[in-house]
Every structure is written in C-alpha cells, then in structure tokens.
C-alpha cells in the first residue's frame, strides 16, 4: 500500500495516458463499424468477404501488429498512433460482425412497415434499423471497450506510455506492488468505461430499461389481454 500512496501522482498520470490511448479506438471502432456493418449485412458477398478479412485481421497478435504498423503508417516505433490504429482495427473486427448481425436481426415486418409509412431508406436506417439494433451494438462495444483497455498495456514493452509501464517498470525494479497496482488500475478503468457505456445506453435507449411489473401487465399483447 505504501507504494501506492507514495506514487499517486504517477498512477494518475499513467491512468490519463491510458485513457488517451483507449478512448479513441473505442469511439472510432463504433463509428466506423456502422457503415461497414451495414455493408456486410446488405449483400451476401460483402458479408463473406468483409467478415473473412476482419476475422484474419483479428487473428494477428497485438505486439507484432504494433511492430509492423509503423512501416505501413510511416510512424515511429514508439508512436502512440500505432496503438490507436491497431486497437481500432481489432475493435472494427469485433464490431462489424456484431453490427451486421444486429442489423440483420431487425424484423423485416418492422422495416417494411416503416417503408410503407413513407420512410426513405436513409431515414429508415437512422430512425428504425439503428435504434432497434442498439442493444446488441451496446453489448458489442462493451466487449470492445474492455478488451481495448486491457490490450493498451501491451504497448508498454515498446515504451508506449500507459498503465502498462507500471508492469515493465515493476519488473525491472522488482516491485510486486507496482505491478499489482497496474493490474488493479487497468481492471478498474475497464469497469468504469464499461459502466459509462451502460449509462450512455440507458440514456440513449430509454425503452430498454427494465419495466416494472405494473407496466409489464399493461404491455400485454391485445389478444392475450382480451382472453385474460
């Protein structure tokens, strides 16, 4: 515990650096997965091609990807851009499949009704398909967020600043408390971001909040209510 108290400013700084590396991939992979997921769901061929390519991308281990990206991006080996791009790619690889499946599970009765009501394809996508796919998208981005926060630490072996530096520094100086602090802080950060996503989901999708028993009774389908 002494180590933690003496090094609070350092832990705070590393946490902020960790956040700066984690938030962009989470946001970017969500935003980019919507159009790519739409494309993957739209045509049978695009689904096969996109999901296969992204599946192979996801199979690439993180450290080798951090090392290879600089020659593609023209960045330095210790550039934090490498980590952000690599984790965005992983996020997209996970989220595109989720997005395609979520959009695909929207009942075509609903989409046809929306078209019949006069929705253009564009408005229908934003006001019918996407909101209905929302809960599944939320589940997907929560998985991406948690694994992103955990993967950021790997960059530390190349000297990229994050909570992971507490691991490498702890190993070099033989301080178990420092490594343990890094692990607890990383897991705590993942939980905080996860909680923030759940809150955001509740605010954006009020209809997914669990209904009280009273309201549930009112929501009975008409024919069942009549016979009851």
């Amino acid at each position: 515990m002494n180590w933690v108290i003496e090094n609070l400013p350092l832990i705070g700084q590393r946490t902020l650096e960790h956040l700066a590396l984690s938030i962009p991939p989470i946001v970017l992979s969500f935003v980019l997965s919507v159009p790519i997921g739409w494309l993957a769901n739209r045509y049978r061929w695009s689904r096969g091609v996109l999901l296969t390519v992204l599946g192979l991308l996801y199979a690439i281990p993180s450290l080798p990807l951090f090392v290879v990206l600089p020659i593609i991006l023209g960045t330095g080996l210790r550039d934090s851009v490498n980590v952000i791009v690599a984790l965005t790619l992983y996020g997209i690889a996970l989220m595109v499949r989720t997005t395609a499946d979520a959009l695909g599970s929207v009942s075509s009765d609903v989409t046809q009704s929306a078209t019949a009501m006069g929705f253009s394809p564009w408005t229908r996508f934003w006001r019918v398909d996407l909101p209905l796919a929302g809960p599944v998208l939320l589940a997907g981005i929560r998985v991406v967020a948690v694994s992103t926060v955990s993967l950021v630490t790997v960059g530390a072996v190349l000297g990229i600043k994050s909570l992971g530096l507490l691991f490498t520094d702890g190993l070099q100086r033989n301080i178990v408390a420092e490594v343990a602090t890094g692990m607890v802080a990383t897991i705590a950060l993942a939980l905080v971001i996860d909680f923030a996503l759940v809150l955001a989901g509740r605010m954006l999708m009020p209809w997914t909040r669990t209904v009280s028993p009273k309201r549930e009774r009112r929501a009975l389908p008409v024919d069942e209510a009549v016979t009851a």
Binding site: S150, V154, V157, V179, L191
Partner: peptide
C-alpha cells in the same frame, strides 16, 4: 479485462 502482460510479469516476479 485481465491485462495479459501484467499477469505474466506478476507471476514472473
């Protein structure tokens, strides 16, 4: 959410 690098290092220590 368990960081693999951290687990590896803490076990090594």
């Amino acid at each position: 959410s368990l960081p693999t690098l951290g687990l590896l290092i803490i076990l090594a220590l």
